[in-house]
Design a protein around this nucleic acid. Structure first.
Lengths: 195, 195
DNA sequence: CCTGGAGTTTACACCGTGTCAAGTGAGGAA
DNA sequence: TTCCTCACTTGACACGGTGTAAACTCCAGG
């Protein structure tokens, strides 16, 4: 179970992620096979189908970055407000790579229920993180009285999505600094409420 | 040029939109032809290719709803703040149909430059609307001093996207009322700024 | 009458996915 | 050494999607 072990499986996953991260959008099984130095058929010896391969690639990518560890950092923040900053921060750092993965999954999700589920599970994890932070802010008395923790979590979750990141940073050319400060301001002014 | 005229072209476009709005995601030329009561080849007599057809369908949909008229309503609002409410309101009403169109375009945009451009043009129109509203809010002295009109417009634009609407209303089950009040609060508290 | 336009059928080339059958080659066990 | 097995290769196929082409039908207008 050494993480450095080079199995055929890991070579395929590496090749897949390499293609995804290179921004190559239409990725065929042939392309992946070529990238991994294998025949197209060899992919089907390890993975049931394309969706199966991509789901494995998703988990592989999550494992390679320390997603769990990153999320622990959010939990370790001193206050709920700091945790919110950490969420925005994490999103600013991870979104470039995430966006590519999301794009690669876009086609597959519509056709394959398992791929859709894998993607939703991942979103669910992020939502769970947002919920915890919203609960902390509430517990610390920083949440406007007329907001529920649920509503706060949902809105934090949706505004810190990689789609919004893409709109602002990629499409509108914001730099990372602007993204972080403005998103934190946006959410905090709403959560704490004073107007 | 009667808008009620039933040409082959309009029958094809109707059929296409009907399939898109029915939530049918994988739409093939065969399916459209069947829906329109024509042979698959007939589609190619009117449209160069699938992207061409979908771009026409996009414009057709925009024309059928009075998009231009709707946007005039935003301009007609008494204050910049009212205009912002109108934007959120419009988005709440149009997003269900928009989201379907966006999904149908998702696949095409990656492959066809013209389809990508048509979609971007449309996004650009909405951004332009946000810019005008941001400028009005600024002119009326309601914009926080440390915010530029550009930044305000960008953030209004990205948080009122149909993706955020989908996240909140479809995925998180918000009702229209919640979506509208919370989004307006979110944006106004940030724009006017007091914390 | 006959011509052209709109639409039809049938066929093809090309590509992507997924399956199948037969072959190869290297390493381990007897 | 021989034999077996496992991982992998090659080549073929069915299926479905896009886009092109040729030939046929049908009908209205000159």
């Amino acid at each position: 179970m050494s993480s450095e072990e080079v199995t055929t499986r890991s070579r395929i996953l590496q090749a897949t992620l390499s293609l995804i991260e290179r921004g190559n959008v239409a990725i065929s099984m042939s392309t992946i096979a070529k990238e991994a130095g294998l025949s197209r058929q060899a992919l089907y010896l390890t993975f049931a189908d394309k969706a199966d391969l991509f789901i494995a690639a998703l988990r592989f990518a999550d494992g390679r970055r320390g997603i769990v560890q990153e999320q622990a950092c959010i939990r370790a923040a001193k206050t709920g407000t700091d945790a919110l900053v950490a969420i925005v921060d994490l999103q600013a750092r991870l979104s470039p790579a995430y966006k590519r993965l999301a794009d690669a999954f876009e086609l597959l999700r519509r056709q394959d229920a398992a791929a859709e589920k894998a993607w939703q599970d991942r979103q669910q994890d992020r939502l769970e993180g947002c919920r915890i932070v919203a609960a902390r802010i509430s517990a610390e008395g920083d949440l406007r009285a007329d907001l529920t923790v649920e509503a706060a979590a949902d809105l934090i979750w949706s505004t810190t999505s990689s789609t919004v990141w893409d709109d602002l940073v990629v499409k509108r050319g914001w730099n990372e600094m602007n993204y972080r400060t403005h998103l934190v301001e946006l959410l905090l002014s709403w959560l704490k409420g004073s107007s």
